[in-house]
């Protein structure tokens, strides 16, 4: 954990915006948590003042005593508010890739190292609705913070705030955090549009055993991950080994999605179009390859291949 110099400690920026992006789990210690009264807390203070004046005006001992009791309780509640945040540690969980134009969700892991539960922790990313979570003692909870993904590329979560008004809502403790949370943003898929049939499609010399869905092509032993719809249950019922029916087409589409087939468009529009084609090709269970200036991803198909292509589009500089 980094230590702060005196000079850093008193920077206004720390108060309003927090420290810069940090790696790894961050534990909330004294130097990170700030506390100020809420608007409602100020109203409460005003009421206490009126009560005190009343007590003095009427020379009333019990009125003094109870005014002091309620005031002291407010003071003690500061400690409870602080303790509700203190020592919590936060780290980044998953941030599944999204398409530009939607909201990117960043999973935040909040760990309560203490035995006492923490209540009403409000995680809030600017411009987005806040999430409120409770944490039992020695538990880790998750909350998802969102950010609008406007552009393709790598989207950092940026600064967000964890705050609490526990226990009485008179004070608010908060800490600004900026963890290294990154979300990959794919280009926004463009309108549907036919793929230019440049070398339209090539019939494959050996067929495509097992890739297409048209014709039955034989059995092979079951491998984990195979669809149960393709399991040859009759054989299984006869106590034979688990077999999977294989299908294949004698011809398959193989298509190259090429940057150069989209001349006269700007970069983002081209990427958007390529993105659409990748998605379409995947949906149609085609095999495809992607060509970008300086990047070529060979013919393949499947989920992993799709993500590889989309990532290349997202990161294209």
């Amino acid at each position: 954990m980094q230590t702060l110099t005196i000079r850093d400690r008193f920077k206004l920026q720390r108060f309003t915006r927090g420290l810069g992006p940090e790696h790894g789990p961050v534990r909330l210690d004294r130097s990170r948590v700030f506390i100020l009264p809420t608007a409602s807390g100020l109203l409460f203070a005003g009421m206490l003042l009126v009560m005190l004046f009343g007590a003095i005006n009427y020379n009333n001992s019990m009125a003094h005593l109870f005014t002091f009791l309620v005031g002291s309780m407010a003071m003690v509640s500061i400690l409870h508010t602080y303790r509700n945040l203190a020592q919590l540690s936060f780290s980044v969980g998953k941030a599944p890739p999204v398409f530009a134009g939607s909201r990117a969700g960043f999973e935040i892991l909040a760990t309560n190292p203490g035995a006492s539960p923490r209540y009403a922790l409000r995680l809030h990313s600017p411009g987005q609705p806040a999430v409120t979570i409770d944490l039992k003692g020695r538990h880790t909870g998750t909350a998802t913070l969102y950010r609008e993904a406007r552009q393709r590329g790598v989207l950092p979560l940026g600064r967000w705030t964890v705050s609490t008004r526990y226990p009485l809502g008179l004070f608010r403790a908060w800490a600004h955090l900026d963890l290294q949370a990154r979300c990959l943003v794919y280009p926004h898929p463009a309108q549907q549009r036919p793929v230019p049939q440049d070398p339209a499609y090539k019939p494959h010399q050996t067929g495509d055993r097992g890739r297409g869905v048209d014709d039955f092509a034989g059995f092979r032993p079951y491998r984990p991950g195979d669809s149960p719809r393709h399991v040859f249950w009759k054989a299984a019922a006869r106590d034979q080994a688990l077999l999977v029916k294989q299908f294949g087409g004698d011809r398959t589409d193989e298509v190259w999605l090429d940057w150069d087939t989209l001349p006269g468009m700007d970069t983002e529009a081209r990427l958007s179009q390529l993105c659409r084609w990748v998605l379409d090709a995947h949906r149609n269970q085609q095999a495809w390859g992607l060509r970008l200036p300086g990047i070529e991803i060979g013919i393949a198909s499947g989920e992993r291949h799709k993500h590889r292509c989309l990532e290349a589009l997202a990161r294209f500089a």
Binding site: I56, F68, G71, S72
Partner: peptide, 25 residues
């Protein structure tokens, strides 16, 4: 818990908070 923790502070305030003879108005 809050009220119990407030009690010692309340006592201090009760004893030491400068008392003014009322009425103020």
């Amino acid at each position: 818990v809050l009220l119990a923790q407030a009690l010692p502070i309340m006592l201090v305030l009760f004893v030491f908070f400068p008392r003014v003879a009322g009425p103020l108005w």
